[in-house]
Nucleic acid binder design. Structure first.
Length: 566
DNA sequence: GCCGTTTTCGGCCCGACTGTTTTCAGTCG
């Protein structure tokens, strides 16, 4: 069983125990589920002893994980489920419904899923239950609609929207300070809602301004300290007003993650302090709160970059003061995977170069697709020579940026490259990727990538796992083998910055780096606007604990050219 | 069920908001 499935079982056990009213165990199962979810390797590959060492996993849960791995079944879980056969995930997705209400609904009306719930609500059965009411029934009916269509949104789509709202607030006279918090600040690859914090001298005015912004669809709640709106982009946005002296504590708290918050509060208690969204307190005295840095400092632990605030272990590493100095947003000096209208791109060569210059790149590689069945708009082999001359001309014409000549080539299903090799030796950068035949076996796909890496001209493996968020999962690969071959052959694995790819993803990046791999962060941009996706790739690398030296395109042009020789 | 710079037993994050609570439980973040 893979980690996701095991975590799901543990999660559901927690829900089931919660409903039965068992105290504390649900928290334990939830925590274990979180640990398994964030694991960078399959738990199947671990021994019992190793599993037991994982945070939040003890003897009892270890036994259950091993049993699941070995037999695919867990009688303990199946028994619990038989006692209450409820679709928790969908019911708990309804705003305002928690475990207690699920229990109440099940016991009084035998409600097991969203359809049951909607049926009963429509027929005004909920209001008859003691503890519920007409108002609650109406709320539930309204919220079912959102629960049904709630999907998480891509970071790449939400980040510009959040920044736009932030800018509008910054321009409003009563706003003193404003920051985007929540999962966007952690740069999580998908986002549930947008959280924004402000300091203001006039909360009422700010709230009025906020709910009237042109991107707002409707107002869900409007108060002096908190307002929630539904944006036209089909996502909720919360605005909270905080006192200036608490801004850092609030930012820390509203940035999360939840697990990190819980862990930091526990840690504060151990130090005789109390941490909440208003500050860090010693008795009644506030010892820190205006900014995040001073809170970490007072606690005597490493400052945690928002991208590193994922789980309990991150806090533990911060306590040990062993967090790495992760790559910065200005450390990247070039983009080695870009397309133009010579193939399937939308912008001209010159426009792409100028966009890259605007971003601040010192060098870029133009890597148009070779024409093939999959990429009918690709550049044909004769035209490559013409483009090469054009690139040389542009390189001379445009100052302060070096243009490298490259290509993106398809790795065929037999592992060979879809191009005659004699042309490759005249190019600076070869990006190879799988753009067809994802359905092969794990062995075949692994061998395909490995034989591409063994090709003397291939420098970069593009979007190595092929996943597309919300569309398709990563293909099955023997990643250990691929990471090792990457090290052995000086072939670099890409962190692709396209909003729905972000591939390699964070946990994989962490693993690759531990194996000794060097990576490259590329945009794979097909138009000038997408040159700015670089920020998303960097964010992903930061979440994967990458430092500057792990990423080849933090090098100068001169150093880079050495790295591109196999 | 897990865990240990108070602990192998006895705790387990915290505050705000909502609804219907007449003093608080449930939910959320």
């Amino acid at each position: 069983m893979d980690n996701k499935e095991i975590a799901r079982v543990l999660d559901e056990i927690a829900d089931l125990l919660e409903i039965k009213g068992v105290p504390y165990k649900p928290i334990a199962y939830k925590r274990a589920a979180e640990t398994i979810k964030s694991l960078s390797q399959p738990v199947e590959d671990l021994t019992s002893k190793e599993i037991m060492k994982l945070p939040g996993v003890g003897e009892s849960i270890t036994k259950k994980i091993v049993e699941l791995n070995e037999t695919g079944h867990l009688p303990y879980f199946e028994e619990l489920r038989k006692q209450c056969p409820i679709d928790f995930e969908s019911l708990l997705a309804v705003e305002g419904i928690g475990p207690k209400t699920v229990k109440l609904l099940y016991q009084s009306l035998d409600i097991k899923d969203l359809d049951d719930l909607e049926e009963m609500a429509k027929h005004h059965q909920l209001r008859r239950i003691k503890g519920l009411s007409e108002k609650k029934e109406k709320n539930i009916l309204e919220n079912i609609k959102y629960a049904r269509k709630t999907t998480r949104h891509l970071l790449g789509h939400m980040l510009p929207l959040a920044n736009n709202i932030k800018e509008k607030l910054e321009g409003f006279k009563h706003v003193i300070q404003v920051e985007v918090a929540g999962s966007i600040r952690r740069r999580q690859e998908t986002i549930g809602d947008i959280d924004i914090l402000v300091v203001t001298d006039n909360p009422r005015q700010v709230m009025g301004y906020f709910v009237a912004l042109d991107m707002v669809d409707r107002v869900i709640a409007k108060g002096i300290s908190k307002s929630t709106v539904r944006l036209k982009a089909d996502v909720n946005c919360d605005l909270r007003v905080m006192p200036e002296k608490s801004f850092g504590a609030a930012l820390l708290y509203f940035t999360g993650s939840k697990e990190v918050n819980v862990e930091m509060r526990k840690m504060s208690i151990k130090r005789g302090l109390k941490l909440n969204e208003y500050g860090l307190f010693n008795g009644a005295t506030m010892v820190a709160g205006q900014n995040e840095e001073e809170i970490f400092q007072e606690l005597g632990i490493h400052y945690m970059e928002p991208e590193l605030r994922q789980n309990v272990e991150d806090v533990e590493v911060a306590i040990q003061r062993e967090l790495p100095l992760i790559i910065g947003y200005h450390d990247i000096r070039g983009d080695l995977h870009m397309h133009t209208d010579w193939s399937d791109g939308k912008s001209s060569l010159k426009d792409m170069v100028e966009a890259a210059q605007d971003w601040g790149h010192e060098y870029i590689a133009i890597t148009d697709h070779i024409g093939s069945l999959q990429v009918p708009k690709g550049i044909d082999e004769n035209k490559i020579r013409v483009q090469m001359k054009e690139l040389d001309r542009l390189d001379r014409e445009i100052e302060n940026i070096t243009i490298l000549k490259g290509l993106e080539v398809n790795i065929k299903s037999d592992g060979k490259l879809e191009i005659k090799e004699d042309i490759l030796k005249d190019l600076d950068v070869i990006v190879a990727g799988i753009n067809s035949g994802y359905r092969q076996s794990k062995e075949q796909l692994t061998d395909r990538i490995i034989s591409a890496m063994e090709n003397q001209y291939v420098n970069i493996i593009a979007h190595p796992t092929g996943r597309k968020i919300h569309k398709r999962s990563a293909y099955e690969l023997d990643v250990d083998k691929i990471f090792q071959t990457s090290v052995d052959t000086n072939t670099y694995l890409e962190v692709n910055s396209q909003p729905d790819r972000l591939d390699l993803r964070d946990v994989m990046i962490k693993n690759a780096i531990q194996t000794g791999c060097k990576l490259v962060i590329n945009t794979d941009a097909h138009s000038i606007e997408r040159v700015w996706d670089m920020e998303l790739g960097i964010a992903t690398a930061r979440r994967g604990w990458a430092v500057k030296k792990d990423i080849i395109n933090t090098s100068s042009h001169k150093e880079l050219m050495k790295l591109l020789v196999k």
